[in-house]
């Protein structure tokens, strides 16, 4: 079953065509890799899906509902969470508060009751606190819950970003380079976490440069190059494709 449908997306920055007529689909409960050399347009596509950029052409459907051009918070509320390529956290808050803030869209009690601190609203918050602690434990951040996010080492900041996204309870999780800059053992742990996240029923669309990670993790892979979709298919097919190798080599030579 198709969860996310990307149809003929084009996005232009001035004279630069960052995305040209890109189409593909993400199936429910799969881990789909999105790869391509630097500047291929991967992050731009994430920005288009999550509502930060409006596409110049094309449409996007999530669960058969069109989400093209919706506001960022509306798209998030529909069940799409994304982490950013650059560490984006509430740096001056504690690790716990960061994750706790992620529960915003779950509250059913009206804001007025939250303001009055009615028993029902307080109970709702207590549930969120408990779940936030669970998510922290799941991402191995339990011991750091009172640290400021800014003081965490890079790898833990990545984990925290994912923890916040999980707090949102997404159906689709967009990960932009979750293991880049990590050492092999950290990478191994993170890959395992992403697998577990999928087992919890979350569909994952992941951008990553670490090819070993991508190949071992993904069910299917879409390759972007210079804003165009080069090819898509299972890891084995992508690994040995001449065009993919050339795209990456070409970039390295330059």
């Amino acid at each position: 079953m198709v969860l996310l449908r990307i149809r003929n997306i084009t996005r232009v920055f001035g004279a630069l065509i960052a995305l040209r007529d890109v189409s593909f689909e993400v199936n429910r409960s799969e881990i789909l890799g999105l790869i391509g050399p630097n500047g291929a347009g991967k992050s731009t596509l994430f920005n288009v899906i999550s509502g930060f950029h409006r596409p110049d052409k094309g449409r996007i459907f999530f669960k058969d509902t069109e989400i093209t051009g919706l506001r960022v918070d509306r798209i998030a509320a529909m069940g799409i969470s994304r982490i950013f390529q650059e560490p984006t956290l509430f740096m001056q808050e504690t690790v716990f508060e960061n994750v706790f803030s992620g529960f915003h869209r779950h509250y059913r009690e009206p804001a007025w009751n939250a303001f009055l601190h009615t028993p029902a609203a307080n109970r709702e918050e207590a549930v969120s606190r408990k779940k936030a602690a669970e998510i922290l434990d799941f991402m191995d951040l339990g011991a750091m819950r009172d640290e400021l996010a800014a003081n965490l080492p890079h790898g833990h900041q990545r984990s925290l970003a994912i923890a916040i996204a999980l707090a949102c309870g997404p159906e689709l999780l967009l990960l932009d380079e979750p293991v880049t800059g990590m050492n092999p053992s950290e990478t191994e742990v993170m890959i395992e976490k992403i697998r577990q996240i999928r087992e919890r029923g979350v569909t994952v669309l992941i951008v990553e440069h670490d090819m070993r990670a991508v190949m071992s993790l993904c069910d299917r892979i879409v390759v972007l190059n210079l804003g165009e979709k080069l090819l898509e298919g299972p890891p084995d097919k992508i690994k040995n494709d001449q065009r993919v190798i050339e795209a990456y080599l070409g970039k390295q030579v330059i």
């Binding site: 509502g51 930060f52 506001r71 950013f84 956290l89 509430f90 740096m91």
Partner: peptide
């Protein structure tokens, strides 16, 4: 602290 992150959490 981060309007972008807040947005992705469903906060308008």
């Amino acid at each position: 602290l981060s309007p972008n992150l807040a947005g992705t959490l469903g906060i308008n």
